[in-house]
Design a protein around this nucleic acid. Structure first.
Lengths: 104, 104
DNA sequence: ATTGTAATATCGTATATACGATACTTATAT
DNA sequence: ATATAAGTATCGTATATACGATATTACAAT
């Protein structure tokens, strides 16, 4: 029963953004999210998101030999990320000044 | 069926943050959220959030004569907002540079 | 007093995010 | 070949966020 402000949400956005910087696998994403959120999200969190993003045509599996599946953004994914980034900035426009204070 | 990145989430955080800047009512919050998100959230969205924040002791109703209930942050609310703000910055630390680009 | 309206409250429902448990797949070690 | 381990996938469940519809409350207007 997260008190309030459990900071849930925007997972698809974060995933799109991370993959846009570097092709990544589900496990790599989990590790990166762990760094940011403080704990590693469960497999049941990340893989359904990757599946949905894939089915919606925003990311694409890179053919790889092993068991690890890496994903890259598609053109639609790039477009979607641009739109989502603008929305994010409009919603949180007044957070810009907070980063310096928080991440001293 | 929001494609992806429906930017849902962090509502309690946003509400706490808005009230921290200025005591506000449910309807004022809906208007401010409309500016940021592009559409006014339904009553069924905002009032349950205010109720929960109130029950958790993060906000407090200001006694007012009319039908409008204004809320202010409690001490616990201020503390909670600080914690949540730091979390936000840790999760989205690399968004700092995007604001300038997006909100030209 | 009655009517109207604005703000608040509640209900049923839907979805993204979240967990832990379990199962499947593939590479590696023995 | 067999066992182990890592990465992926799926299942059942829970919660915050979201809607629209409806109900309630309280002031305002006539």
């Amino acid at each position: 029963m997260g008190t309030c402000c459990d900071m849930r949400g925007f997972l698809s956005f974060i995933v799109l953004r991370l993959i846009s910087k570097k092709n990544m696998s589900g496990d790599e994403l989990r590790d990166e999210l762990a760094k940011r959120k403080g704990h590693k999200p469960s497999p049941g969190t990340i893989y359904p998101v990757l599946k949905a993003l894939s089915e919606n045509g925003f990311i694409q599996e890179i053919k790889s030999a092993g068991k690890i599946k890496q994903y890259r953004l598609t053109k639609n994914g790039i477009k979607e990320l641009e739109i989502a980034t603008r929305k994010f900035c409009e919603i949180f426009y007044d957070m810009e000044g907070e980063f310096g204070r928080c991440l001293k």
